[in-house]
Design a protein around this nucleic acid. Structure first.
Lengths: 344, 344
DNA sequence: CTAGGGTACGTAAGCGCTTACGTAAGCGCT
DNA sequence: AGCGCTTACGTAAGCGCTTACGTACCCTAG
């Protein structure tokens, strides 16, 4: 069989430079044991030839794999898309390629995707999205990642903890707290929460912040009507319906992410509930469309793109003995979807 | 150096089955030359051992690369995110992994990303996004793809032609035509177009459809105020400002994609122009948020997710002598952002 | 002047697969 | 019985790299 590719190989570079394969390899890898002039000459020739190392051969021979695997819930969810954009952009700067998997918000399938990525020998695994309140899969994922790291793999999480790996973590609790406070400052007393699936740790954390803010103001916990749906626009629409039907006294809705907030706004519009005159609405994440909605959405800004970059940065660093946690700033962004509580 | 990974290798499978490497390889690849019972036994053992072929070794040895490279403009643009979702989902079903690159709407950088993907030896290249009206880079990209295919690579385009490869193509002209017709049917006479960058072929095609519809109704071409921006929400906002300032008589705005339409709506809202009472607005693509906007957006629906799947399907098929073109359906979706022209 | 050590390179052994080619056994045919 | 053909498998040569180890050579110290 003829050579499949006509691309120059390392052997071609070595031949042109009249050195051995080993020397050429060392020079291009920037390893020592090659004199400066020779190394420079080899690099020059490689460049002229348009030589690019074959990543398959490189990895097979024991070099580090240059691909990073990224697991998201759904790539067409803006929250994840913005994270992915950050990862991809930074990876491109580092000469790395990003492989994306969708878990579809299913812990079992996510675990399967994780195993698949590892079986495909990616060098770095980045896992985003909320953790699941499902000991079985979380423990299995933890074990999988631990074994992966023991064999030299690197991993980091984005917005989820408890995986035993480095993590970039927004302060979900503080964010929830800030939202509730903002609404109470506006005089709202009857607040409902459109929460995502109860099995997500992110939901629990954000909810905890909301509750603690309520407690600080000395409200009984049942002031807070919590409706669980899922973290999608459809979930937000359904949650809003339920809130309007079962808790008609509500004057403000806290959606625990922006997608749900959009669904909430959609339902309020079709039900002709003026926002914020009769109902205030807040979201969480500040996906980029949030500012362009009608009304524009009051929400907690998370730097998703930067979180993606940071996660990859963490994973690229030498592994530390214990998992690092890199906190992420958050910011209450007040826009047009919130206003004073109506006097009824 | 010890073996880097503790994963079972083909040799382990072969040993357990008491056959040679070659036989094991053939059995797992489903190639002939192995008796049915032996093949079944080998597959059984491989499964028990949890054997997964090392893709680096497999590809290096001449097997087909199992990764597909996908080039998008921006992954956090919903149009591309939905395409990517389709590609990733279908790829997962096929046991393939998807590597994503962002070109950032820059033809030069896109070419660079394409070369990078090919240098990384992906087996399949999928390239989405509009083509550029830039002969230099388009010709180079064409050549790169031709060479890639000649060496056994497979490629397909999504929403762009003229690359000499298989393509999934929406009928941009017909879509533009339908939008313009819809508005004229509503009595609009002064229509402005918020167009993306003039160097994009997609823009030219959609615009051509709009113009032809206008001509059919016997309108002078300068009825149509065309403002070029870029295919983003910010671009839409700017375009709307310009239209309001320079063409105050306008009663309807055709944004050539949904992102721009969102920007247009945003500007109209802040300028307190009621939609659709004083101004109708239409978009193009029907990204999933379009239905949840206020007002919900009249637009042309393109099946982005399906387009992603179809493109990969095309690329997986044996190459045909001449590039195939797979048309995509489109549909005018009338929602609340369009209404009868105001009588002024 | 020689032993010892460092530097700069070459040699060659893999990494885990695929596949061309070789071989032995079984079959039908004359 | 002997021939050739097919079938089922084994042998071994790579694919294009990395890297452990070997080997010249030069420099310094005793």
């Amino acid at each position: 069989m003829p050579r499949a590719s006509q691309r120059p190989r390392l052997a071609d570079v070595a031949a042109h430079a009249a050195v051995s394969l080993a020397t050429a390899s060392r020079a291009l890898a920037g390893r020592e044991g090659v004199s400066a002039e020779v190394a420079e000459r080899i690099r020059q020739i490689a460049h002229e030839l348009g030589y690019v190392a074959n990543p398959y051969a490189r990895t097979l021979a024991g070099g580090a794999s240059s691909t990073v695997g990224l697991i998201v819930h759904q790539i067409d969810d803006p929250y994840f898309a913005e994270i992915a954009a950050g990862v991809i952009q930074f990876a491109a700067e580092q000469g790395l390629l990003v492989q994306i998997c969708q878990s579809g918000r299913d812990p079992g399938y996510e675990l399967q995707q994780l195993r698949h990525l590892i079986a495909q020998r990616v060098g770095i695994v980045l896992i985003s999205g909320s953790g699941y309140d499902d000991p079985r899969t979380e423990v299995a994922a933890r074990a999988e990642l631990a074994a992966f790291q023991d064999h030299g793999g690197r991993a980091a999480a984005i917005g989820r903890h408890a995986l035993g790996i480095d993590a970039v973590l927004p302060d979900n609790e503080a964010g929830g707290h800030a939202l509730a406070r903002h609404l109470m400052d506006l005089g709202h007393r009857r607040i409902a929460v459109a929460a995502g699936s109860a099995t997500l740790t992110t939901v629990a954390d954000r909810l905890a912040g909301v509750s603690s803010a309520a407690r600080e103001r000395g409200r009984p916990p049942d002031d807070l009507a919590v409706v669980h749906g899922d973290f999608t626009r459809a979930g937000g629409r359904a949650a809003a319906e339920q809130i309007l039907n079962e808790h008609p006294e509500t004057t403000a809705i806290i959606a625990l992410n922006d997608a749900m907030a959009m669904g909430v706004l959609s339902t309020l519009r079709s039900r002709r509930v003026p926002v914020p005159a009769r109902m205030s609405v807040v979201g969480f994440d500040d996906v980029s469309v949030a500012a362009d909605l009608a009304p524009s959405l009051t929400t907690i800004r998370l730097p998703m793109t930067e979180m993606g970059r940071t996660a990859l940065t963490l994973a690229l660093k030498p592994r530390s003995t214990r998992p690092r946690r890199r906190p992420t700033g958050h910011l209450l962004v007040v826009r047009d979807s919130t206003g004073p509580a109506p006097r009824s």
